[in-house]
Design a protein around this nucleic acid. Structure first.
Lengths: 242, 242
DNA sequence: GAGGTCCGTAAAGAAACCATCAAGATCACC
DNA sequence: GGTGATCTTGATGGTTTCTTTACGGACCTC
C-alpha cells in the first residue's frame, strides 16, 4: 500500500486530503507543522509527501531540504503561494511538483499517480551474452567470460552496442555506418572491416574464425548470442548464470 | 548534453523556449505538429519533451501515448487548456508535469530541472564501496579504508557523488560536466582532467595507476566497486585494470 | 582461368585525447 | 585588507584513437 504524508496546518485541507486519499486506498498520515512532519516522515517512511509551504514553525523549503537529505520520496508542494520565485526555490530544493491552492482534487490525485508511476523501478537494459563475452548495455562495458572488462574505444563500443541491440539479427553495413559515422558515410564499408577485425582480436578466441561476430557477406554483420546454459570449453569455474 | 524536444505550434512560444533553453545549455529541437514531433523524438531520442495539447494534427494526449509506448523520457505538458479533466487525462496518459499558459519561464525551467533530477538513478544502497575508499551518499562523505574521513571540496564531492550513483557504470564526460558545472559547460573536459587527478591524489594509493577511478579514453569515467572485504592483488604483469 | 568485387589483416601518420604541473582568479572568512 | 581554500586557466608531453593506404585471399562471373 502506498503511504502518503500530508504536512499542512489547515485542518480543512488536511481533512479533505485524508478522506479523499484514504477512499482511494492510500495509507495517510497527517502532520500539522514542519517539525512533526519531519519526525513522522523519519518514522513512517512515507512513499509520497504533500507539503504546504506556509507552515507555522519551519519554512516549507527547509522541510523539503530536511527530507531530501536522506529520502528520495516524491514531494508535492501544495500551497497558496503562487509567486514564481517561491516555485523555483521549492522545486530546486528537491520538490517534484508544485500545486497552488485552490486546487482540484482530481488534478492532485492525477499528479500523485504521476509521482507514484515515476517512483516505480525502471526496467534495466539487458546484458547480451555471446559465447565468449557479455555486453552490458547499461554500463557500456564488455566483459570476457572470466569477468575481466575489455577496454573498447568509442567507435568499437558503438558498433558492439548496435549489434547487441539487435541480437542474432542481421545489421546491414549501411545501418552500422549510418549510426556510427553518420549519414554521409554509407559507402565507407572499409571502416567496418577494420573495426570488426579489431573487435574480433579483442573478443574472439580465434579471430580468424569468428564465432560471435559473424559476417554475412554482401549483407552485413550479426552478433550471435549464446543460450544461457551454454557450455564453454575452458573457464569451467565461471559463474555464468541464467 | 541534455536534449529537449519542444512540440508546439505557436511560433512565439516555440521561439521563446528555444532561445531560453539554448541559452542555458540545452540542445533544443522544435516540432510544430504532433506527427513531426513523434518522428523527431524517434530520431533524436530527446531527454525531455515539452508538448502542447492543442496541436493542429494529433491530439496532445495521443502524442504522449505515442512517446510513452517506447520511451520513459520526462514529458511536460505546456498548454492553454486549464480544465481539470484535460490535466487528469494528460497526466494519466504518462505526462510528468502540466503547466498552463501563460507561464513563467523561470518556473518552467525549474520544472525541467526537477524532471532532469528525477531521471538520475537513485541507488538503494547508500554506501558505495571501492577498493580503497567508501562513498556514503547519505552522509555526503568519503572515508578511506581505515575509517578516516577524506576531506573533499564541493566540486570534488559532486564528481564522486555522480560517479557513485552509477557504480561500475560508464559516466560520460558530458554527463559529469552537465551535472556538476551546468548545462553550458559540456565542452570543458579539461576541468574533469584536473579534478580527476586531484581526486586520485586523495583517494588512490598510486594516483598514476588508478584502480578505482578509471578513465575510459574517449568514453568517460567509471568508479569501480569492490565486493565487501575484497583483497586487492598487486598488479601482476599486465597494466590494464581488469 | 582472367578480372572484378568483397573481405580480412597489418601498419603508419594525423588528430584527438589525457595526465600533470603550476600560476592566476575568485571567494569566504577572519 | 589579508589569508587560505577553492576554482579556473594555461602550457607541456605522453598516449590513445581515427583515418587512410597497401596487400593478399576468397568468391563469383564470364
Amino acid at each position: 500500500m502506498t503511504t502518503v504524508l500530508v504536512i499542512d496546518d489547515e485542518p480543512s485541507i488536511a481533512r479533505a486530503l485524508r478522506i479523499n486519499l484514504h477512499a482511494r486506498g492510500y495509507d495517510v498520515h497527517v502532520a500539522y507543522d514542519g517539525a512533526s512532519g519531519l519526525s513522522v516522515m523519519a518514522r513512517e517512511r512515507a512513499d509520497i509527501v504533500i507539503v504546504d509551504l506556509g507552515l507555522p514553525d519551519i519554512d516549507g523549503v527547509d522541510v523539503i531540504n530536511g527530507i531530501r537529505g536522506w529520502s528520495n520520496a516524491p514531494i508535492i508542494v501544495l500551497t497558496a503561494r503562487d509567486q514564481e520565485p517561491e516555485k523555483v526555490s521549492a522545486l530546486d530544493a528537491g520538490a517534484d511538483d508544485y500545486v497552488t491552492k485552490p486546487f482540484g482534487m482530481d488534478e492532485l490525485l492525477a499528479r500523485i499517480r504521476a509521482a507514484e508511476r515515476r517512483a516505480l523501478p525502471q526496467p534495466d537494459e539487458p546484458i547480451v551474452r555471446a559465447a565468449h563475452f557479455t555486453v552490458d548495455l547499461a554500463a557500456k562495458q564488455v566483459r570476457s567470460l572470466d569477468g575481466a572488462a575489455v577496454r573498447l574505444t568509442p567507435t568499437e563500443w558503438h558498433i558492439v552496442e548496435m549489434l547487441a541491440r539487435h541480437p542474432d539479427r542481421l545489421v546491414t553495413a549501411r545501418q552500422l555506418l549510418h549510426e556510427v559515422w553518420g549519414p554521409s558515410y554509407d559507402a565507407e564499408t572499409h571502416y567496418l572491416r577494420v573495426y570488426l577485425a579489431q573487435l574480433r582480436r579483442k573478443l574472439e578466441p580465434d579471430p580468424s574464425r569468428p564465432c560471435c561476430l559473424i559476417t554475412d557477406p554482401g549483407m552485413g554483420y550479426r552478433l550471435i548470442t549464446a543460450p544461457n546454459g551454454c557450455v564453454i570449453q575452458q573457464a569451467s569455474h565461471g559463474r555464468q548464470n541464467g
